[in-house]
Amino acid sequence: MNIFRLAGDMTHLLSIVVLLLKIRTTKSCAGISLKTQELYVIVFITRYLDLFTRYVSFYNTAMKLVFIGTSVAIVWYMRLHKVVKQTYSRDEDTFKHYLLIPPCFILALLIPLEFTVTEILWSFSIYLEAVAILPQLLLLQRSSNIDNLTGSYVFLLGAYRALYIVNWVYRFFTETHKIRWIPWISGLVQTALYADFFYYYIKSWKNHEKLRLPA
């Protein structure tokens, strides 16, 4: 474990805490894409299939359980909670997220880490995570005003994978000296998708003005 990866995991955890805080305190999920949240449930389940078969560390197991548990809880809130589900921006959250699944799955069949079920699903989850934020970014562009918690959530979510990239560079030079194409390229694509959001987020933060993404 290195500081960059720990910072990445903590940033990821913080993003989920901020989202749960927003939903629980404001009893609203306005501006949050249910489709992105559903994709994250798939990402975590297909990535952590080895949860009960491969013990890495207490930290690793605990975090996997937290990520799966919280992502399912968020989808439950947005779909089933009697108050929160009324606030879901259903007619703006229109990205056809199910269209992302077949290409990622086909890519996982073509370029798996190993040609075994768990490694194909692991690769699928890495590819899917790279594009899972698209419905959320589209929804942000449509939202007239983005509340601070939603903006912070997306910023932290983008920042976590950027920290993972630093972690990969660090590990390459200090530990593995191996190229890891699947997570590296997916991680770069994932972080690149946040590029314009980062630009407008940091600009709004510096100018103390409301965050607005150009349509």
Binding site: R54, V56, N60, W122, N167, P183
Partner: peptide, 10 residues
């Protein structure tokens, strides 16, 4: 299997 470093990451 842990020789592949990526599987100790989340």
């Amino acid at each position: 299997p842990l020789d592949r470093p990526m599987h100790d990451e989340l």
